[in-house]
């Protein structure tokens, strides 16, 4: 009786990467495992953590969403250096709605997500006509200028910000709301990107001429992608406003731009799961490294350079490759 090694996924994959033939529960598990793991993990994790780490978990989820939003844009060919714009816009919109009109968080959060998304989209609309780095330049400077604007004009609380927001009813609602949104965003947008709509978006990044040549208005598609991404970002901002019960100038800080990019790059650009994974690695890491203070940001900078130059595929793609190469011994006659 001779034995040889065989890839586990042989026999499962039929023709292409997306057609499978499943014969046993083990094979089902092999395919579903990678998807079930984050779902179960996200649902159970909040129960196991103490109060401090639950807060960290919240910001992990928030940064994961911002990283997903960044990656969505990057896959459409728009490299944002200003996720803080989306975050801050959502934060301020919900803060204003709650502070001045006393609206309930359940109203302010969705309204801020949509309204914030619309405002950001309108602000960035003119740049969509240009490709390449214009988008990066404009997204980088707009949030930093908005900070000055608030500082100078003292609108919306000026430097002090607005405080005393209505918190969400309970801690568990906070945790599971953000988990739910994260999972929906992760799997929903993954599905969207593999649909024909997503293919068009990726096509714009790859070869916009050819997409235009198919009679497709690429600006319309870019606008849609931008709206989706900025609405996700605005949602996180609005959510955190009610968690912190405060909104102020720090919401436009560079941190909200850099950490999501670092998460997406480290996790694996071009895949939403990678962006999420990156956030789950980097945010707790930066919590542990809180002791070294400002040096953390230096490390983020270096992380960005090292990963983009030396490991451009990111952690997720590496794990994915290894996972598909699992082998087992089979008997041959």
């Amino acid at each position: 009786m001779k034995k040889r090694r065989e890839r586990i996924d042989r026999g499962i994959k039929v023709r292409a990467g997306d057609v499978f033939a499943l014969c046993s529960w083990r094979e089902v598990l092999y395919l579903a495992g990678p998807k079930l793991l984050p779902i179960i993990g996200c649902l159970i994790l909040p129960l196991l953590l103490n109060a401090y780490w639950q807060k960290v978990f919240l910001s992990v989820a928030v940064f994961a969403l911002l990283a997903i939003s960044w990656d969505l844009l990057a896959q459409t060919g728009m490299i944002s250096l200003g996720q803080a714009l989306f975050y801050g816009m959502g934060a301020y919109v919900s803060g204003i709605l709650n502070h001045y009109w006393g609206l309930h968080p359940f109203i302010t959060i969705p309204v801020a997500a949509i309204l914030g998304g619309i405002i950001c989209t309108l602000l960035l609309l003119p740049v969509l006509r240009l490709r390449g780095i214009y988008f990066s330049m404009v997204t980088l400077i707009i949030p930093l200028m908005l900070v000055r604007l608030i500082e100078a004009t003292r609108i919306f609380g000026g430097t002090e910000g607005l405080s005393g927001m209505t918190p969400l009813p309970s801690k568990w609602l906070e945790l599971y709301l953000i988990v739910l949104v994260l999972l929906c965003a992760l799997f929903g947008f993954r599905r969207m990107l593999s649909s024909d709509f997503g293919l068009v978006l990726k096509g714009i990044n790859d070869n916009d001429r050819s997409v235009m040549n198919a009679g497709i208005n690429i600006y319309l598609f870019k606008t849609q992608a931008l709206f989706i991404a900025s609405a996700i970002g605005a949602f996180t901002g609005a959510f955190m406003t009610h968690v912190y019960m405060f909104v102020g100038m720090p919401v436009f800080a560079l941190d909200y731009s850099i950490l999501p990019i670092a998460a997406a790059i480290v996790g694996g650009p071009g895949s939403l799961a990678g962006a999420t994974l990156g956030a789950f690695i980097l945010v707790p890491l930066s919590e542990i490294l809180r002791g070294i203070g400002g040096l953390r940001i230096v490390f983020y900078g270096l992380f960005l350079v090292v990963f983009i130059v030396a490991l451009p595929e990111g952690i997720f793609h590496y794990i994915q490759r290894k996972y598909h190469r699992f082998e087992r011994w089979v008997e041959v006659d």
């Binding site: 024909d196 709509f197 293919l199 050819s210 997409v211 198919a214």
Partner: peptide, 9 residues
């Protein structure tokens, strides 16, 4: 071929 087939035309 999906992109041209997605065209409004």
């Amino acid at each position: 071929m999906i992109i041209p087939l997605y065209s409004p035309r």
